[in-house]
């Protein structure tokens, strides 16, 4: 599986113009805050519309301004893990985990709850409400929720940034397991050097809305 992006997005004075490819494994988008890294992920997920360009994953076009293709977020099968876990506060942990699982087309499901829940060590939390969990637990549930929707591409937007050091050490092994166990490309946004060194198979540096070599 692979992933391809070549887009321009203008908003006011800021122009984001990026082109790169990513293969299976974990690719880090690395750069200072405000460089446009999150906007790139939002365009891939379909919650931010590029001004022009093309995005394709696994041979399918997600967005192409030339052919006016713009798949809705729910048709892109792109998993998104946010800096804040964004769990649904009115649903239990289990309902959160199964939200996307139930919506995924059966033929395309590759992640099973019986496998993913123990892998993330969240089996004992299923009955709980998200707001009663620690930050690290919330983020593990959010990771599980995204994986269980069986995405063909996984976006992670500074998933450790809001956690303290101990919690970061708690989550990192799980991310490594996913990186090694899943066959899909993972785009991982961070501005932390330590995470780049530990996780990255490939690094793409973003500065001022551009890819820099």
């Amino acid at each position: 599986m692979s992933f391809d992006i070549d887009v321009v997005c203008s908003r006011g004075d800021f122009e984001l113009a990026v082109a790169f490819q990513a293969g299976p494994g974990l690719t880090v988008l690395f750069g200072p805050s405000g460089a446009g890294k999150t906007s790139i992920l939002n365009m891939i997920a379909g919650v931010l519309k590029p001004t022009r360009g093309r995005i394709a994953a696994d041979g399918q076009v997600l967005f192409d301004s030339a052919t006016r293709t713009d798949l809705k977020p729910e048709h892109r099968r792109v998993g998104y893990i946010f800096q804040d876990a964004r769990l649904f506060p009115h649903l239990s942990v289990e309902q959160n985990l199964l939200y996307g699982y139930k919506l995924a087309p059966e033929a395309g499901r590759y992640a099973a709850p019986d496998h993913i829940i123990p892998l993330l060590g969240i089996g004992h939390l299923l009955e709980r409400r998200p707001l009663s969990l620690s930050g690290g637990e919330q983020q593990r549930v959010a990771i599980g929720r995204a994986i269980l929707a069986s995405p063909r591409l996984l976006l992670m937007d500074e998933p450790l940034a809001s956690l303290d050091d101990a919690r970061k050490q708690e989550i990192l092994p799980y991310i490594e397991r996913l990186r090694d166990g899943l066959k899909i490309p993972i785009l991982y946004v961070t501005h932390a050097r330590a995470e780049v060194d530990r996780l990255a198979a490939a690094v793409i540096r973003i500065e001022g809305g551009k890819v820099v070599a």
């Binding site: 919650v47 809705k72 977020p73 998104y80 946010f82 964004r86 929707a149």
Partner: peptide
């Protein structure tokens, strides 16, 4: 947005 990326219309 999170719900949409999980496949919800």
């Amino acid at each position: 947005h999170a719900a949409r990326t999980l496949g919800a219309s």
